[in-house]
């Protein structure tokens, strides 16, 4: 265990654990748009930057992304230094210019006092902030179905060759974890469409409810050694089944005793 000072308060941290983790544990609110615990930090949005210094640094400060900076003993962190606050509102201003219609961005920008962008709004801008959470999750899960395409200002998230991605199983993790809810999908009539690819949902053999796609279940069954029939019932019917089984045993017991 090491000790660091965050906003004047001395707190304990594990050596090498990222500053953001420590800051969040202390219930201090700093914004992030590209951070997800399931994947390696990338330091893309720059909103989590904090001011750091040490007594030995002679008054000199550094500004680092807390999601990527490992805690060191004796570090003094200021999560809301004036320069940091100014940087955050500037970045949110940039985001707002790029994605003026995104409710999530507008709300976060408003929290930092940016109600209207001072920059030139991007015409026909979409709501993708290029945080890469979707692609990184897809990589971590092992599908690697979608990726960042192009570079710079024209970069976008897309399936390879802009065609229905063969490697996608329709797990929806990309869409569900998108901080601006940009990734669209359509679920109806027992089917699912995402990234222009159509999937069939497994319907519960008892009640017809759907949970995941057939492709996803097959993937898990083959790669994770889970019997495929586990996926054939929904969770509610599985519970009912378990209640039935345990009930029968309890009833035998009861009858045997009486």
């Amino acid at each position: 265990m090491i000790h660091i000072t965050i906003n004047g308060k001395v707190v304990q941290a594990k050596d090498g654990e990222m500053l953001l983790t420590v800051i969040r544990r202390e219930q201090i609110d700093i914004p992030t748009l590209c951070h997800h615990e399931a994947v390696e930090p990338s330091g893309a949005c720059r909103l989590c930057m904090v001011e750091i210094t040490k007594p030995s640094w002679d008054g000199w400060c550094d500004y680092v992304t807390s999601c990527l900076y490992p805690a060191e003993d004796g570090l003094i962190v200021n999560t809301h230094a004036p320069k940091v606050n100014e940087l955050r509102s500037s970045i949110l201003d940039m985001f707002l210019a790029r994605h003026p219609k995104s409710p999530e961005i507008r709300q976060l920008a408003a929290e930092y006092g940016v109600m209207k962008t001072q920059f030139e709004e991007v015409v026909d801008g979409d709501n993708c902030i290029l945080c890469g959470i979707c692609t990184r999750i897809c990589d971590t899960m092992g599908f690697k179905a979608i990726s960042m395409v192009g570079r710079g200002h024209g970069k976008e998230v897309a399936p390879p060759l802009n065609m229905a991605p063969a490697a996608c199983v329709g797990c929806l993790s990309c869409a569900k974890n998108c901080p601006t809810n940009y990734i669209e999908y359509n679920m109806k009539n027992g089917g699912l469409t995402i990234w222009k690819k159509d999937f069939e949902m497994i319907a519960c053999t008892e009640c017809g409810a759907t949970t995941i796609t057939k492709e996803f279940a097959e993937y898990l069954s083959v790669n994770r050694d889970i019997p495929f029939d586990y996926f054939e019932k929904c969770d509610a019917c599985h519970r009912k089944e378990l209640a039935g089984t345990m009930g029968r045993i309890a009833n035998w017991d009861r009858e045997a005793r009486s």
Binding site: K144, S147, V149, G150, R151, A158, P160, L161, A167
Partner: peptide, 18 residues
Amino acid sequence: TSEVLDVPLSKVFSVSTF
């Protein structure tokens, strides 16, 4: 290329467009 080098097609596409 993706098949022969055993690199996911999405990564090949990323590199091709970067």
